[in-house]
Design a protein around this nucleic acid. Sequence first.
DNA 1: GCGACAG
DNA 2: ATCTTGTCGC
Length: 271
Amino acid sequence: MSAGDAQIQRDKVEDEPEREQAESRQWEREQTHLRKNLITFNTEAWQSHTDFLGLQRIGGVDLSYPKEDDKVACASLVVLSYPELEVIYEDCQMVTVGAPYVAGYLAFREVPFLVDAIHKLKEKDPTLMPQVLLVDGNGILHHRGFGVACHLGILTDLPCIGVAKNLLQVDGLENNENHKEKIRQLRNGGDSFNLIGISGNILGAALKSCNKSSKPIYISVGHKITLETSLQLVHSCCRYRVPEPIRQADIRSREFLCKKTAISETSTTGH
DNA sequence: GCGACAG
DNA sequence: ATCTTGTCGC
């Protein structure tokens, strides 16, 4: 075996298939391209008013997956009234996922269905269109500064906020003792500290979302909103650790998935 | 070999 | 994301 063959052999064994590598290179170009349109300041009047006067509808999105089939999922979009946080719109849709989950490229797996859900709402009842979306995952706190919340924001032109349950360790950010100590110093719900990468950029913030949670959530700018506004808004939506719009989207997509899975098994069994 | 790896 | 029960605490 020549040295060249050994190199090829290593690539095949250790790395993802070449097709997927080519795909992620394409995805990377797409992210870099879309990122040029990102807006990281407040664009809406309600964002600078006290108590977000003028904000009436806030959306949440999520996807749930069954354990037995990695091709099917339930995509959900909910809209809550603000500040009451009551669900005024719910849409769950079974979908066939086309892309695998690859860290750093979550949007290419989930975002198409979320864009569909927004388009569907626009046709069904435009008056229920959310004025801001909370997205499961990160915004600019991302390998290339363009996480799923940015991606969805650009494709829908809606203000978006990234809400992640775990710290994505990029740009030198680490969930180390130093980080954990800062978390322990967060006293009350609403307390937060900025996440500054080795690049010097403020990538997001760790937020103690409610008094009871010892583990923070990680907030980052998606589109058309600042980090400061995002932190205030997300905190104002937290009855529990996970902000209500995302929590409701999560609960409802899970339920819908269970219901649909049960039905498909019934028809398969012939009952 | 070990840790990371949004969802 | 999903796999998983009870359990300790307020």
